[in-house]
Amino acid sequence: MLSATTTAFVSKVPIAFPSLPPPNPNVSTCGIKNDGQIVLQRVTESKTKSLRLRLVTNSVSEDSSASVDVDVPFPSDYFELLQQARKATELALKDNRQLMEIEFPTAGLESVPGDGEGGIEMTGSMQLIREFCEGFINPEKATRTRIFFPEASEVQFARQSAFEGASFKLDYLTKPSFFEDFGFSEKVKMADRVKPEDELFLVAYPYFNVNEMLVVEELYKEAVENTARKLIIFNGELDRIRSGYYPSFFYPKLAKLSKTLLPMMETVYYIHNFKGRNGGILFRCYPGPWKLEMSVF
């Protein structure tokens, strides 16, 4: 039987293992019940393919006190993924969720962070954000949506590529400084960037520089908290902060986010792949439960 702490760790802090799984694994689905018990259903190799696309388990949602059956298929491609993410976000907004997270791999649905080159993964995220917004935000609200990229140069690149001709407001969290080569950047005061007509903020992949998430916290405190505005973090790799990847001794402000900002966040759409002999997939589509598919041998 799992303790409540162990269950939260499984749901919140997935860790990727860097080796590839052996071929032809058997698979089990895993559901987490209210009492902490894990229910495993062994699946033969012949059923693996259908299970891969129909990730259906009996588990518990963070917001529910009862066991819930939710039939949300694991996406077969990025088109289906974006459809699911849009629907999940719409439902979260209807439930008045103010701070939201969307996280999924961009180098392929079975990839983990680092499988692709960093710049390529960010460019992939940029294109997927444009497609997400086009199908999610009404044209009349596009000018009231502000999309923050990590730095000013990324905004310029977005305007010349994925967001060319878009009506969304493009902005940035940081801008380069003289000491950029040493890991320093100039902080941008969020109160100066936000406009009164802004309704929705979307922050794109704020993980390359450790200061970016600190600016996101400032954005939330100065422009979202105690207002009707909403904030979505898109592919921010927040599990790095949750898991203690950044030692609190060296990054005390960043580590503090795991106790301040992140607990307030609703993970509306999430895919994380585990590699290794006991690999698997952790999946959530709001308002459904967290679901885990594991490989067993």
Rank of each mutant, 00 (worst) to 15 (best):
F201A: 15
R146I: 00
N34L: 15
P22C: 03
T123H: 06
Y78F: 14
T6V: 07
Y78P: 02
V56T: 06
V72K: 03
D71K: 07
F283A: 07
K230I: 00
Q83F: 04
I147Q: 02
V224G: 06
K169A: 10
S177T: 14
E101R: 11
S67H: 03
F74H: 05
E212K: 01
Q84N: 00
V13L: 14
F104D: 08
P196F: 07
L2G: 03
A8K: 10
F9T: 13
D63H: 08
K49G: 06
D77C: 05
E80D: 04
V70K: 08
F283R: 12
E212S: 03
Y251N: 08
R42M: 02
I233R: 13
K221W: 03
E237I: 14
V188G: 00
S153L: 15
V215K: 14
A162K: 08
A166V: 05
V72G: 00
L51S: 09
A92K: 06
L99Q: 09
K87Y: 05
E225Q: 13
G135E: 02
K94E: 13
S295V: 10
K189W: 07
L257V: 01
I32M: 13
S67L: 12
N211C: 03
T267M: 01
S59D: 03
I281C: 09
Q156L: 09
C133V: 08
D95L: 04
R144M: 03
N34T: 12
P14M: 12
S243R: 10
Q41E: 14
P247L: 10
T48D: 01
V268K: 08
L53W: 10
S19Q: 15
V215I: 12
F234W: 13
N34W: 06
N24I: 09
V68D: 05
S28L: 01
V43F: 10
S111P: 03
I281K: 12
L214G: 01
N209Q: 11
G244L: 07
S258M: 03
D181Y: 09
C30I: 15
F149C: 00
E164L: 01
G280E: 05
G183Y: 00
E134V: 05
E90Q: 14
K175M: 13
L292T: 01
L200S: 02
V27M: 09
Y286T: 04
S28E: 08
S111Y: 07
L262A: 06
T5P: 00
F201W: 13
T29I: 12
E140W: 06
K141Q: 15
E117D: 09
R42N: 14
I137H: 00
R193E: 14
P14R: 11
N211R: 05
G244N: 05
L53I: 07
F79K: 14
P247V: 09
K175T: 15
F132R: 08
E121P: 03
N273P: 13
F274T: 04
S28K: 07
W290I: 10
S125C: 14
F168E: 11
F163S: 00
I102C: 07
P75A: 07
F178Q: 07
N26Q: 14
M100R: 12
S65K: 02
E121A: 15
N34Q: 13
F148S: 02
L51T: 13
K291A: 10
E217L: 05
L202D: 01
G165H: 06
R193L: 15
